[in-house]
Amino acid sequence: TTVEVQGVEYRFDNPEEAEKFAKKMAKSLNLRVELHGNKWRVE
């Protein structure tokens, strides 16, 4: 599972970890998070 934060990609073996990371990043950067296939995008 991939998390893309403002163009930078982070890879996770565990989808739940990816989701937690994406939501945490979105909250700290005041952005929103969307799931596209198996990629979380924070923008």
Rank of each mutant, 00 (worst) to 15 (best):
R32I: 12
V5H: 06
A26K: 01
S28A: 14
L35R: 12
E34T: 14
N30F: 04
V42C: 15
W40Y: 08
H36W: 06
S28L: 15
G7R: 03
E4T: 11
M25Y: 04
Q6N: 12
A22S: 02
W40L: 08
L31K: 05
G7Y: 03
N14L: 09
M25V: 10
R41H: 13
D13W: 07
V5P: 00
N14C: 15
F12K: 01
E43D: 13
A26Q: 02
K24A: 14
R11S: 10
A22D: 01
D13Y: 08
K20V: 10
T1W: 15
L31P: 01
R41P: 03
F21L: 02
V8K: 11
D13E: 12
K24P: 00
A18W: 01
H36S: 11
L29T: 03
K23D: 05
P15L: 06
E34I: 12
K24H: 14
M25C: 15
T1G: 07
V33D: 02
K20F: 11
N14Y: 09
E19C: 15
Q6F: 15
D13V: 08
G37V: 03
E16K: 11
E19V: 05
W40T: 03
K23V: 09
G7F: 03
S28I: 14
W40K: 03
N30A: 05
V8Q: 09
A18N: 00
R11W: 14
V5G: 01
A18I: 00
K39E: 06
V3T: 01
K24M: 13
V3N: 00
K20N: 11
N38G: 13
L29Q: 05
T1Q: 09
A22C: 06
L35Y: 14
A18V: 00
N30I: 03
D13T: 11
N38P: 08
R32C: 15
Y10W: 09
L35H: 11
E19Y: 10
A18R: 00
K24R: 12
K27I: 10
F12T: 00
K27D: 11
N38H: 05
L29E: 04
K39C: 15
N14P: 01
V5K: 01
N38T: 06
P15Y: 08
E34W: 10
F12V: 01
Q6M: 14
D13N: 10
V33P: 08
E34F: 12
M25D: 00
F12N: 00
F12Y: 04
V3Y: 01
L35P: 03
R32S: 12
D13P: 09
E17Q: 08
E34V: 14
M25N: 03
F21G: 00
A22R: 01
K23W: 09
K39N: 10
K39W: 05
G7D: 04
R11Y: 14
E34M: 09
R32V: 13
F21W: 07
E19G: 04
E4G: 04
K20Y: 11
K24N: 12
K24W: 13
N30T: 02
V3A: 02
T2N: 05
V3H: 00
L29A: 04
V33N: 02
T2Q: 08
L29N: 04
N14S: 12
R32M: 12
E16P: 03
L29P: 03
A18Y: 01
E19A: 08
T2R: 08
T1H: 14
Y10V: 05
T1D: 07
E19S: 05
Q6H: 12
R11K: 13
Y10R: 03
A22K: 01
F12A: 00
Y10P: 00
R41G: 05
H36T: 10
V33F: 14
A22T: 01
N30V: 04
K23M: 12
K20S: 12
P15E: 07
G37Q: 05
V5D: 01
N14H: 09
E43R: 09
Q6G: 10
P15I: 06
K23N: 08
K39S: 09
T2H: 08
N38M: 05
T2A: 08
S28K: 14
V42Y: 02
E19T: 03
S28Y: 13
L31W: 05
T1V: 11
K27R: 10
D13A: 10
S28Q: 14
N38L: 05
F21H: 02
E4D: 12
T1A: 12
V42E: 06
D13F: 07
K24Y: 13
A18Q: 00
E4A: 08
G37L: 05
R41K: 12
K27L: 12
V33Q: 02
F21C: 14
A18P: 00
N38Y: 04
N14A: 08
R41W: 14
E43G: 15
L29H: 06
V3C: 14
G37A: 04
N30C: 15
V42L: 07
E4Y: 12
L35I: 07
F12W: 02
R41D: 04
V8I: 11
K39R: 14
G7P: 00
E9S: 09
R11T: 12
Y10K: 03
L29D: 03
H36K: 10
R32H: 14
H36Y: 08
A18D: 00
G7K: 04
Y10E: 01
R41Q: 13
E9F: 09
E17L: 10
R32P: 11
N38D: 12
K39T: 12
L31N: 02
F21T: 01
A26G: 12
A26M: 03
V8D: 04
T2I: 15
V42A: 04
K20P: 01
R41N: 06
F12S: 00
Y10L: 04
E9T: 12
G7L: 03
Q6L: 15
Y10M: 04
K20I: 13
N14W: 07
E17P: 02
G37P: 02
Q6Y: 13
R32A: 11
E17M: 08
A22Y: 01
K24D: 13
E9K: 06
F21A: 02
E4Q: 10
N30K: 07
Q6E: 11
V3D: 01
H36Q: 10
G37C: 15
L31E: 04
V8G: 03
R32Q: 12
R11H: 13
E43Y: 15
G7A: 03
K23H: 13
Q6A: 10
